[in-house]
C-alpha cells in the first residue's frame, strides 16, 4: 500500500529542508532591516549584510522623536479601532435588515453595495476631497473615520449578508413571541450569533485601515493627526537616503502590526479564509 509514503520519509525530509531554506529567503528582508537599523551610517554604507560592529541604539531614539512615534501610533490606533467597530456595527445592522426584510428596495440597495466593490479608489478620491471639504470633514480624525465607514460598508455588508442567510429564523421568532422588539432581537439574539463573521470583518478591515496610506494622506494635512504610514512617508521626503534614521523608523512602524499578527495569527488566518470563501 502507498500509505507508508505519508509518513516522514527521506523525500519529505528533503522537501522540508528546501522549504526551510525558502522560509529563510522570505525572512532575509527582515534581517537587512533589523541589523542595519542599529548600525552607524558609515558602517551601514560599507557593508549592509554584516552583523553590526557597534550597536547604535540612539538611531531608534532619533527615529522615535522625529516621527513622533507615540503620537502617530495613537492616531493609527484610534482611527483603526473606532472605524472597525463602527463598520462592524452598521454593516451587520444593514445586512440583517436586508436579509430579513427582502423588499424590492433592499434588493436593489444590496445590488448597489455589491457592485460598488468594483469601484477603484481612484475613481472616487478626486471629488471626495471636495465633498469632505463641504461637509467640514477634512483634516479631522472623525472625517477620516466617516470615510472608512463609507468605503468599508460594501464588503462588510456583503460578508454579513451571506452569513445571516444561514442563521435560522426560529430563534428570532421565539424571541418575538416572548415580547422582544425588533431592535432587541437584533442586539440580544442575532448580534452574538454573528461572532465568527464579526471576527472576519474586523480582521480584514483592521489590516486595511491600519496600513492605508492614500486616503489619510488626502484627508489629514495637519502634523498632529499623522498616522504611522503618513509619518513614515513624511520622514522619507524630508531625510532622503538617511538610512540610519529611516530603517529604525520603518522597524518601529511595522512592529505593532507584526506583534498583532503573531498574537492574533489564528484569527487572522481564519478570518482571511472565511472572507475569501464568500468574496
Amino acid at each position: 500500500m502507498k500509505k507508508l509514503s505519508r509518513n516522514y520519509s527521506g523525500k519529505t525530509f528533503i522537501v522540508e529542508i528546501v522549504m526551510i531554506l525558502m522560509g529563510l529567503l522570505f525572512l532575509v528582508p527582515f534581517y537587512f532591516l533589523l541589523v542595519n537599523s542599529v548600525k552607524s551610517f558609515g558602517d551601514l554604507l560599507s557593508n549592509a549584510a554584516s552583523w553590526p560592529t557597534t550597536f547604535e541604539w540612539g538611531n531608534y531614539q532619533r527615529a522615535w522623536e522625529i516621527t513622533e512615534f507615540p503620537k502617530a501610533f495613537m492616531n493609527s490606533l484610534v482611527i483603526t479601532v473606532v472605524s472597525i467597530l463602527l463598520i462592524a456595527l452598521i454593516s451587520s445592522m444593514a445586512a440583517y435588515r436586508m436579509v430579513r426584510h427582502n423588499s424590492r428596495f433592499n434588493k436593489v440597495l444590496f445590488m448597489i453595495f455589491v457592485a460598488a466593490m468594483v469601484i477603484p479608489f481612484q475613481s472616487v478620491m478626486i471629488p471626495l476631497v471636495k465633498v469632505t471639504g463641504w461637509l467640514d470633514l477634512a483634516n479631522t480624525r472623525t472625517g477620516l473615520i466617516i470615510c472608512y465607514l463609507g468605503f468599508g460598508a460594501p464588503l462588510s455588508i456583503f460578508l454579513f449578508h451571506g452569513f445571516i442567510k444561514s442563521v435560522p429564523l426560529e430563534v428570532e421568532e421565539a424571541a418575538v413571541v416572548d415580547g422582544c422588539t425588533p431592535y432587541s432581537v437584533y442586539w440580544k439574539i442575532v448580534f452574538p450569533l454573528l461572532k465568527p463573521m464579526l471576527v472576519t470583518v474586523i480582521i480584514l478591515n483592521s489590516l486595511w485601515i491600519w496600513n492605508d496610506y492614500l486616503l489619510p494622506s488626502l484627508m489629514l494635512q495637519s502634523d498632529a493627526l499623522h498616522t504611522i504610514p503618513i509619518a513614515t512617508f513624511a520622514l522619507f521626503g524630508q531625510y532622503t537616503k538617511q538610512w540610519d534614521l529611516a530603517l529604525p523608523a520603518l522597524t518601529l512602524g511595522i512592529l505593532p502590526i507584526i506583534i498583532f499578527f503573531l498574537a492574533m495569527q489564528k484569527y487572522i488566518i481564519e478570518g482571511i479564509t472565511a472572507g475569501s470563501v464568500k468574496g
Partner: peptide
C-alpha cells in the same frame, strides 16, 4: 438598521463617484 450604512456609503462613495 439600513440608514447609517447607506448614508455614509452614499456621501463617501456614491455621490463622489
Amino acid at each position: 438598521f439600513v440608514g447609517p450604512a447607506t448614508f455614509f456609503f452614499m456621501i463617501i462613495v456614491g455621490i463622489p463617484f
